[in-house]
Structures are given as structure tokens and as C-alpha cells.
Design a binder for these strands. Sequence first.
DNA 1: TTTATATTCAACCAATCGGTTGACCTTTGT
DNA 2: ACAAAGGTCAACCGATTGGTTGAATATAAA
Lengths: 115, 115
Amino acid sequence: MAATLDTVFMALADPTRRAILSMLLEDDMAVTDVAEPFAVSLAAISKHLTVLADAGLISQEKRGRVKWCKLEPDALREASVWMQGFGQMDGVDLDAFEQFLASEGVILAEEEAEQ
Amino acid sequence: MAATLDTVFMALADPTRRAILSMLLEDDMAVTDVAEPFAVSLAAISKHLTVLADAGLISQEKRGRVKWCKLEPDALREASVWMQGFGQMDGVDLDAFEQFLASEGVILAEEEAEQ
DNA sequence: TTTATATTCAACCAATCGGTTGACCTTTGT
DNA sequence: ACAAAGGTCAACCGATTGGTTGAATATAAA
């Protein structure tokens, strides 16, 4: 829930959690199915999913006895914007960049906050 | 040196280290000057700088008794590319995006590798 | 040469991390 | 009613993290 840069980057720092995100890119999954390919306990994966959910990177909805995990790519936006301040985006005409994004139907974080 | 996604994201997960990167965005700095605004010991900052250097996010060059710290924004590229696989870049016309970047003088990772 | 400056090293500490196991709760199926 | 399946919880473990302090090292200045 408290999706700060701290929690997002911390969540992304673990390879198992990044692999989970990649899996969820394909489709929503139950906790047990997320855990299946990994050589660790279900409880460990459950913890990883909690970390991802706390970072806002996934959401979890319980239907019956199954808890469905869904990728929430929006949480990456804040972190992505932060990173872009350092990379080769430096020197880029930001107005033109925003116009380009708008032309592609992308909604920036600040714009969304005003809605 | 071993700039993996693990080490890069882990390095970015700490607010002090992110603040250091922001400072280095302005200019190269000596270790002592980096440490000055922070309420922690010089040794602690020295460790943070080692973490950043191991992640490839900064480089350190010793001239005389002063060790100069320099931002290395390229290290963010790999992580940024990984993240863009999830975010709202999804669905964006990547060709148009690259053209836009090229028009802004930005060199993408793949292009640079071919040089 | 002596002294101050810049930085790291080494040892230590409390807190956190990723992992385990076994008990537990809830929902579904027989 | 009973058993199985889906998940979490709680307690524990070893390793790592971010921090400290004091000593050590190397360079520069007096």
C-alpha cells in the first residue's frame, strides 16, 4: 500500500520477485500457481507476494479459497520517472517527450493526480 | 562492478543513496563533500558509495588524497529497460519512440553496442 | 618533520531479509 | 461430517544491512 520508491526498488531487488512479476505479465495467477516453478516453500512465495503487494506492484483479490494475484504496472511509473532523471533522458526536451507520450496515449503521474 | 539488476535495484532502494545520486547529478564530488549534508558518519557514506560503485551507478577516481565520485547514468539503462517491459510503455509504438529519442540525440543501448 | 585532511578498515551492534517448519483457518469436494 | 486444498501465521534461523566507533593509511600543508 505504501508504494514509496524505497519499497518499490527493494521489491525489485530480489530475482524471485522479479520472476514473479514476469509471470504475472502473462496472466493473473493464484498463489499456489505462482509458487509452482520455484524451489522454495509456499510460505516463502506468500511472503514475496506480500512484499510486492505492499510496494503496489501487484494486487491480490481473494475469490473463494483462491487468492488471485494481478500485476499493477502503474506502481513502476513513479520509480521509472525517478530513474529517467539520471539516464540518457538527460538533455532531452521534456515538453517534446511529454507530447510524444501523450500522442501514444500515455498518462503521466502528475496528470493522473489532477483527475 | 557486477552491475546486475539485483545490485542496481538494491542500491536504489536506500533513500540516502538516491539522495547521493541526485547530488552527483549536479557535479562530481569528493567523499567528504558527499557526506556533508547527511547526519551519519563519514564511514557510513563511504559504505554507501561503495554500494553505488559496485552497482555501477557511480565511478570513483582517486586524485591525490581526494576520491572523486562521478555519476554513471548508463548503469540505470538496463534496469530502466527491464521496468519498461511492465509499465505504460507497453503498447507504445517502439519505433516511433526510438525515432523520438534519436531526434533528441539519445543513444540507445543496442545502438551503442554496435559501435 | 610534524600536523592536519581525506578516506578506508575492522570490529561490533541491532534490525531486517529470505528462508524454513508446523500449526492454523477457510473454503471446497465427497 | 470429514477430508483435501489454498494460504497465512508464528516462531525460529543464518546471513546481510545500515549504522557506530576507533585505529590505520596515505597525501598535503605548515
